[in-house]
């Protein structure tokens, strides 16, 4: 499958495993660890899917999700991938308009299936 995925995550070891898994599926991966520069990366890499952490330096994942929704034209699909798994966090993400909400720790199989589902 062909597709571009942007991983916005500040834990390098999590990024490394995600990148390994998704590249094996033939996806093109870019990475941003700074929440404050996430939107810039979205504009630059034009991903089909953004994997977005919530607790990020400089800007929260929820704010970045709002930013993505305010972009003109076709917007990427967004998967929130967070340790903040409380109901209110899920509600917040769904109110803003997330495509998939996943909590850490995740299953490799499930995350690959979800990303491929968003790209289908």
């Amino acid at each position: 499958m062909v597709g571009r995925v942007l991983i916005v995550e500040d834990e390098p070891n999590i990024v490394e495993s995600l990148q390994f898994l998704l590249e094996r599926e033939g996806l093109e991966i870019s990475v941003q660890s700074d929440g404050g520069r996430a939107l810039e990366s979205v504009r630059a890499s034009e991903p089909d899917v953004v994997i977005l952490d919530v607790m990020l330096p400089n800007r929260s994942g929820f704010d970045i999700l709002r930013d993505i929704h305010s972009l003109p034209g076709k917007r990427p699909k967004v998967m929130i991938l967070t340790a903040k798994g409380q109901a209110r966090d899920r509600d917040t993400a769904e109110e803003i308009g997330v495509d998939i909400f996943m909590t850490k720790p995740f299953s490799n199989k499930e995350i690959i299936a979800n990303i491929l589902g968003l790209l289908a």
Binding site: I14, S17, A83, K104, P105, F106
Partner: peptide, 9 residues
């Protein structure tokens, strides 16, 4: 949770 995520994955 981040540590566990990295270890598990």
């Amino acid at each position: 949770l981040s540590n566990i995520t990295a270890v598990r994955s």
